[in-house]
Amino acid sequence: MRDIHETRQARPKLCLIVDDSRVIRKVSSKIAVSLGYQVVEAENGEEALARCKQRMPDLILTDWQMPVMSGPEFVAALRAIPTVHEPTVVFCTSKGTAKDVHEGIRAGADDYIVKPFEESALKAKLEKLGVQ
């Protein structure tokens, strides 16, 4: 019988892309797939929370400004879900002031990247976080 750690390691890494822009989700998905992730998408924070309750992702790339629930509201709600496996959360947003970065980190994000970003910049950020 396998233990839970063996089973989890056998599953592909899962990345959840949360953005109300279909174009941004597709671009981000391509990058995540190139890094070895299986990708699921959500258009807003409410949909993303539902996906997280189905299966907690390893990595979440989320926008800040979305309908229904903002990125910071989503991340705060996500961090309130009891889980043995905390996902790495990176804001991918055009809001790039120091105040915005601090607010995102306070909400529970692990890091921040400003749009538009290059694939190499996201890869470097994920390597730094140890999730690539």
Rank of each mutant, 00 (worst) to 15 (best):
Ala98Gln: 10
His102Met: 10
Ala77Trp: 00
Val101Lys: 14
Pro67Phe: 06
Met66Asp: 10
Ala77Leu: 01
Thr83Pro: 09
Pro67Asn: 01
Gly108His: 07
Gly96Phe: 06
Gly108Tyr: 12
Gly71Ser: 06
Glu73Arg: 05
Gly96Ser: 15
Asp63Tyr: 09
Ala76Phe: 02
Asp100Tyr: 12
Ile81Gln: 11
Ala98Asn: 08
Glu103Trp: 00
Pro87Lys: 04
Val84Arg: 05
Asp100Arg: 01
Trp64Gln: 07
Ile60Phe: 11
Ala109Tyr: 03
Asp100Phe: 12
Phe74Ala: 02
Phe91Ala: 04
Ala80Gln: 13
Ser94Phe: 08
His85Met: 08
Pro87Thr: 07
Arg79Asn: 11
Phe91Arg: 01
Pro67Asp: 04
Met66Pro: 00
Lys95Gly: 00
Val114Ala: 11
Val90Ser: 03
Met66Thr: 02
Thr97Ile: 10
Val89Leu: 09
Asp111Lys: 01
Thr97Val: 09
Val68Ile: 13
Trp64Cys: 10
Leu61Thr: 10
Thr97Leu: 11
Cys92Ala: 15
Asp63Lys: 03
Glu73Cys: 07
Lys95Ser: 11
Lys115Cys: 10
Leu59Ile: 12
Val84Cys: 02
Gln65His: 04
Arg79Tyr: 07
Thr62His: 12
Glu103Arg: 08
Ile113Leu: 15
Thr62Phe: 13
Lys99Val: 12
Ser70Met: 09
Ala98Phe: 07
Glu86Asn: 10
Leu78Asn: 03
Arg106Asn: 14
Val75Asp: 11
Met66Gln: 06
Glu103Ala: 15
Gly104Ser: 08
Leu59Thr: 08
Asp63Arg: 02
Arg106Ser: 14
Met69Glu: 07
Pro82Val: 02
Val114Cys: 11
Gly71Cys: 10
Ile81Tyr: 09
Gln65Pro: 00
Glu86Lys: 12
Pro82Cys: 01
Glu73Ser: 11
Ala109Glu: 04
Lys95Gln: 13
Thr62Ala: 15
Ser94Lys: 00
Val89Pro: 00
Lys95Arg: 13
Ser70Arg: 09
Ile105Leu: 15
Glu73Asn: 02
